[in-house]
Design a binder for these strands. Structure first.
Length: 435
RNA sequence: GGAGAGGUGGCCGAGUGGUCGAUGGCGACAGUCUUGAAAACUGUUAAUCCCGCAAGGGGUUCGUGGGUUCGAAUCCCACCCUCUCCGCCA
């Protein structure tokens, strides 16, 4: 949600943002509805005021004839009012539907571009290595080490499903635990959040409306022949949804900001519209685990910019500790979400893909989410302000297993366990073929 | 899943058709008193939307959505949530 005063005063800003973000929304049409709605509102409110005034006087009227005539008049007014309220309801619904699609305004330094091909690299870290033997990709490694089983995942759950097994499962948990400990040192509070959330949480974090096809809706099918009844709850695609919504509707203390939170959760994505894309291996799957950083801070672009750097760095430090080469890109307008106003992706080198692949996504929203979620704080001057929200991946697995397994593979087919993870795997140094 | 109880302002709690956005208490804030603090006393104390440069005016909100009525916190219906007991269960 955006500041509507700004839309009314400077619609051209939002038209430009729609264009830049490939959002099909007619700002002028919205403003027309907005105007009509306010006019209808004024009419309705005048009638309501009249009704209230008469109702207030009613008990003092003793004269029976006068009373009857007023009741008659009010009955008429009531009918007209009902019509007005119904018309206002229609306008409200249209207004809300459009209002929820208004884009956050990208910061001036965001590169213009149509899609991820126009993201701009801003730095790289680590050297892309060369190997003196034929590399296996993570699928081949996972199979030969018996730590990843994709065919059986597909057998029981369909395309884009998998099992992690044995040391593969342990390696994933080592990565997650290492990351949680890293964030603990940085002052973050960990959350195991609800994985199933209601519609409001999806709207509040701006996944809905628009992202319905990406989320699994949960329902019940009472028998095979009956249709599924929706429970109107949704599996989260990221713990950002639950954790950012945690303070929904609350007014926080300024002293308590910034809130440094991280959620650890399974994440579920339908990946609708990606048929045929990234079908190989563990890159794009329906279910994964993620430690996500979430920040709530004061409504000051300088402060949220600082927090953005902080959570970006936290993620980079994890990759550095794992000794994985990566690069950071400025995400261009066309590859940004509706509410995001600045976004960096971290892409980690994936030898089998012979390119960097997105492993982290760091987003600043300013007050876009907090307006929807109604999260405020009391500022120094006593006024209530909406917090700024941000989030960034800190680790997401199994996608991160692609570079970990591929980069740490040895000529004999084994995989060395990254040093920082060994304490989380009972000191184990290598993942070897089962004998 | 079965039976029952309940959802009122920051919190507790009264209100069962009309000058009720709502008595009272607690908390918070300001003031008086005090060397200072406490106590006592006095006053202030919701959110949100619309109109307005502002002063101000008005609408909405008593879990949510409908309905009855000239008028609903109060009556009716549906749904949601919380609590207690029973059943099932990790």
């Amino acid at each position: 949600m955006v500041d509507l005063d700004l839309v009314r005063k400077s619609p051209e800003l939002f038209e430009a943002a729609c264009k830049a973000k490939n959002i099909k929304l007619d700002i002028r049409a919205f403003l027309k509805i907005d105007m009509e709605r306010r006019e209808k509102m004024a009419e309705t409110q005048t009638m309501q005021a009249k009704r209230n005034a008469v109702s207030k006087k009613m008990p003092t009227i003793k004269d029976k004839t006068e009373k009857e005539s007023i009741v008659k008049e009010m009955k008429l007014l009531g009918e007209k009012l009902k019509e007005h309220e119904a018309a206002l309801g229609v306008l409200d619904a249209q207004w809300m539907a459009m209002q929820l699609r208004l884009p956050g305004l990208p910061l001036p330094n965001v590169p213009k571009g149509k899609d991820d091909s126009e993201n701009v690299e801003i730095r790289t870290h680590g050297k892309i290595p060369t190997f003196d033997f034929d590399l296996k990709d993570h699928v081949a490694l996972g199979e030969s080490l018996d730590i990843i089983d994709i065919p059986r995942g597909v057998k029981i759950a369909g395309a884009r499903s998998y099992f992690l097994k044995g040391d593969g499962a342990r390696l994933e948990y080592a990565l997650l635990m290492f990351t949680l400990d890293h964030l603990k040192k940085k002052g973050f509070t960990a959350f195991i959040p609800p994985l199933l959330v209601n519609y409001d949480a999806m709207v509040g974090t701006s996944y809905f409306p628009g992202g319905e096809e990406m989320a699994y809706a949960v329902g019940v099918r009472k028998s095979q022949s009956q249709p599924i009844e929706s429970d109107d709850v949704y599996l989260i695609g990221t713990s950002e949804v639950s954790v950012t919504s945690y303070h929904g509707g609350e007014t926080l203390d300024l002293q308590a900001l910034p809130k440094r939170y991280c959620g650890i959760s399974n994440c579920f994505r339908r990946e609708a519209g990606t048929y045929g894309k990234d079908t190989h291996g563990l890159y794009r799957i329906h279910q994964f685990q993620k430690v996500e950083q979430v920040i709530l801070c004061e409504n000051d672009p300088a402060v949220s910019a600082k927090m953005h750097k902080e959570i970006l760095q936290n993620a980079e430090e994890v990759l550095q500790a794992l000794k994985l080469p990566y690069r950071v890109v400025d995400v261009c307008t066309g590859d940004m979400g509706q509410g995001q106003i600045y976004k960096n992706d971290i892409e980690t080198w994936m030898p089998s893909r012979k390119c960097y692949g997105e492993t982290h996504s760091c987003s600043t929203f300013h007050d876009f989410q907090s307006r929807r979620l109604n999260i405020k704080y009391t500022a120094k001057d006593g006024t209530k302000k909406f917090v700024h929200t941000l989030n960034n991946t800190c680790i997401a697995s199994p996608r991160i297993l692609i570079p970990v397994l591929e980069m740490y593979q040895n000529k004999d087919g084994s995989v060395t366990v990254p040093e920082v993870l060994r304490p989380y795997m009972g000191g184990q140094e290598k993942i070897k073929k089962p004998s």
